[in-house]
Design a protein around this nucleic acid. Structure first.
Length: 424
RNA sequence: AGAGGAGUGGCAGAGUGGUCGAUCGCGUUGGUCUUGAAAACCAAUGUACCGCGAGGUACCGGGGGUUCGAAUCCCUCCUCCUCUGCCA
């Protein structure tokens, strides 16, 4: 969430940022927020004064009791009931105000970076670069949902039987390819200096709030009522929350973590023809990279992450393009996001396989993730993360782009991990 | 899952209703001493909010309650330890 103090010092920046995101009436929103905070401060001051007086009296009663002046003490006690009522009322009011303030902070998205362009949606995203040749396929080529049947490597019907739509069963070489990607992606991340983490894939409410999935976006996550735990939609949640309520020394920066996890998303209402096959699933696998940086270095780190993910796509020999998302298409918590999309040759469309974002202090403010500078002053850190990479769409692109009349040719980097060169 | 015990500042560990935001120790930082170091000695050393400041307020696992006053008493939840049971 945004910092009220910062909104106060640069209200204009906040309003302009929200305009980029097409937020209705941003100025009113910001003014209401500041006014709520004013009220909060006022109440706080009043309450503190009443409490100070109460404390004073309580101390004096204590002193009198110790001197054995019981009667005088009883006299003083009479003064307390009104103060008590006052403090109770103020406390309730303050609590209410704080809740209102927090609620409205939760509803305001992050302020986009100055370089992020305005825009309504996906059509307005900026094309940064396009890399690689789109393959020319043999006649009779088919989308991956046919290929997986032909070679019997992924079974959606079985998934429906066991769980429901969107829960594929990987079989034989399909399963092995999953395992190959897992090891390949983690090995690459480690070479790049990311420390491997295996986090829990069920998280509590506090973790969901920390990274911004809660409140408001409950709909995306599977939730177990009996334990009040959520299945993670991405490893970002448990991995970033390792650093909830942490104060780091400046020398400990940057923190670079990588984690493989399954991810679970309800994706309610987003089904249709364009999400056939592996394009959109309720359960999928992903290696996620997470970074924590000094505010001065976070945008350099974002570029490095983008370069790193592109390196993976090059090694996989997949044609891709990089987009910088416009204000209207960017995630709620992000200040700047690059999407990497691979060309899926039989579907003839771009598939998003990675999204790398800088959240600046939006997450760290919720997480209370800070660092201590040389003068022992505490400041919020910047958090970043990105997919590196999400398996299903990579698999879809590999299957479609590398199909030939005699089978599917596996990219060279995956062969040592997969243990085979062809699916045929 | 059942029975019992426990959760206090970076660590260790006092404190069971009244000048306790919290003794002492270790650690860390600064200083004195020393050719240098160690030792010794002196001092500082939690977080957040309000305030220009002086200062004030809150926090002793979380939440609620009793009381003029709660780290201390009560309720509830969470976590850890021991024993019993179950299990990969």
């Amino acid at each position: 969430m945004l910092q009220v103090a910062q909104i106060r010092t640069d209200k204009d920046k906040a309003v302009k940022g929200l305009v980029k995101r097409n937020v209705a009436n941003p100025e009113k929103l910001i003014d209401e927020l500041i006014s709520l905070d004013d009220d909060r401060k006022e109440l706080q001051t009043q309450l503190d004064a009443v409490l100070a007086e109460s404390n004073q009296i309580a101390k004096s009663i204590g002193a009198l009791m110790q001197q054995g002046k019981k009667q005088e003490a009883e006299q003083v006690k009479l003064k307390t009931s009104e103060l008590k009522q006052q403090s109770k009322a103020l406390q309730d009011e303050l609590q209410q105000k704080e809740k209102l303030l927090l609620d409205s902070l939760y509803q305001i998205p992050n302020i986009p970076h100055a370089d992020v362009k305005e825009g309504k949606g996906a059509d307005d995203n900026e094309l940064i670069l396009e890399h690689g040749q789109k393959p020319v396929l043999h006649p009779g080529n088919t989308p991956h949902w046919d290929l997986i049947k032909k070679y019997d490597i992924i079974d959606f019907d079985l998934g429906v039987k066991i769980s429901g739509a969107g829960f594929p069963v990987y079989k034989g070489k399909g399963a092995r390819l999953q395992r190959a990607m897992l090891n390949f992606f983690l090995d690459e991340a480690e070479k790049q200096g990311f420390k491997e983490i295996q986090p829990p894939i069920l998280i509590n409410e506090a973790s969901g709030i920390g990274t911004g999935q809660l409140p408001d976006k409950e709909g995306q996550m599977y939730h177990d009522e009996s334990t009040d735990l959520y299945l993670i939609p991405t490893a970002e949640v448990p991995v970033t929350n390792i650093y909830r309520d942490v104060i780091l020394d400046e020398q400990e920066l940057p923190v670079k973590l990588a984690a493989y996890t399954p991810c679970f998303r309800k994706e309610a209402g987003s089904w249709g023809a364009h999400v056939r096959g592996l394009n959109r699933l309720h359960q999928f696998d992903k290696v996620e990279i997470v970074q924590i940086h000094h505010p001065d270095n976070s945008y350099k780190a974002l570029e490095e992450m983008s370069t790193y993910v592109q390196g993976l796509l090059k090694k996989l020999e997949l044609p891709y393009r990089v987009l910088r998302l416009c204000g209207g298409d960017m995630g709620f918590t992000s200040a700047m996001t690059y999407d990497m999309e691979v060309w899926s040759a039989a579907q003839e469309r771009w598939l998003e396989v990675s999204s790398v974002s800088n959240f600046e202090t939006y997450q760290s403010n919720r997480l209370k993730l800070r660092y201590k500078d040389a003068d022992n002053k505490k400041h919020l850190l910047h958090t970043l993360n990105g997919s590196a990479l999400a398996f299903p769409r990579i698999l879809a692109a590999i299957l479609e782009n590398n199909q030939t009349e005699k089978g599917i040719h596996i990219p060279e980097v995956l062969r040592p991990y997969a243990g085979f060169e062809w699916i045929d």
